[in-house]
């Protein structure tokens, strides 16, 4: 049974499959956080979204009871990302890093919150209850930093394009064409790039088709209509990128 099979709308199988995989993935350790921490981050993003009126509480909205408590600084980052992304400025980033959150942990939190907000907004859009979190697993995080990651032009370290980025770049981005920052932004945690691109491919369009204006990835909308929605959302979020 698919995640959204009880929806009144016909949902693309690709979206349903990717979302299901991503929810199941919360039961697995990430690169810098274990499963319990990752679910706590996603669940808190929901909690603040509901408090702000951006989501509706439904049965099984929150993670199962846990003894794990998010740190104050992690909560601050999650809250800002979840409900007011336009207010995230360099000073804020510097402050949370100086407060003790590592650059790697910060990037993984950005990836997790961005993905849960994505999937929750999709559910809200089709008027479907929020998807329940799985029980947390017990494996430890790998804590492997990509060896070629370095400070380029983003606030956080990123893997440069190939060849400068070496093997990690080749594995993550391919040899060419060079990838833009929206692909590389999370590359300090390569697994988050992979997941970000899975959602991108299912929900927007396969990478590399941005100039293919004849591509119709969604049955319900033309490319022009797709860009109207994309542009409006990004304008409201005051995203210059």
């Amino acid at each position: 049974m698919g995640l959204y099979s009880d929806s009144k709308y016909l949902i693309k199988e690709e979206i349903e499959t990717v979302h299901k995989d991503h929810f199941l993935d919360f039961a697995v350790a990430g690169t810098w956080g274990n499963s319990e921490q990752r679910i706590a981050i996603a669940s808190f993003a929901r909690e603040v979204g509901i408090s702000a009126g951006l989501l509706e509480e439904t049965p099984n909205t929150f993670a199962h009871e846990s003894n794990f408590k998010l740190s104050k600084v992690a909560k601050l980052v999650v809250e800002k990302l979840a409900i007011s992304p336009k207010d995230i400025l360099k000073d804020f980033f510097d402050e949370v890093i100086n407060t003790g959150l590592s650059e790697e942990e910060y990037v993984e939190i950005v990836g997790i919150v961005s993905r849960i907000v994505d999937m929750d907004i999709f559910a809200r859009g089709i008027n479907h209850p929020l998807i329940a979190f799985p029980e947390p697993g017990v494996s430890p995080p790998s804590k492997v930093r990509p060896e070629t990651a370095k400070l380029e032009l983003a606030w956080v370290s990123t893997i440069p394009n190939f060849p400068e980025g070496g093997l990690p770049a080749k594995q993550l981005f391919g040899e060419k064409p060079p990838k833009p920052y929206i692909v590389r932004g999370l590359s300090l945690v390569p697994d988050e790039v992979t997941k970000h691109m899975e959602l991108e491919k299912a929900q927007y369009q396969p990478l590399g088709n941005i100039m293919n204006f004849d591509l119709r990835h969604h049955k319900g909308l033309s490319r022009a209509q797709v860009e109207v929605v994309a542009g409006k959302v990004s304008a409201l979020n005051e995203c210059f990128y």
């Binding site: 979206i15 992304p85 907000v117 999709f122 920052y181 970000h196 959602l199 927007y204 979020n237």
Partner: peptide, 17 residues
């Protein structure tokens, strides 16, 4: 799907600077 995807992208872009 599009609104959700760009909500994600906006957070990645603004969050990573």
């Amino acid at each position: 799907a599009i609104a959700a995807n760009f909500s994600k992208n906006d957070r990645i872009a603004n969050g990573c600077g």
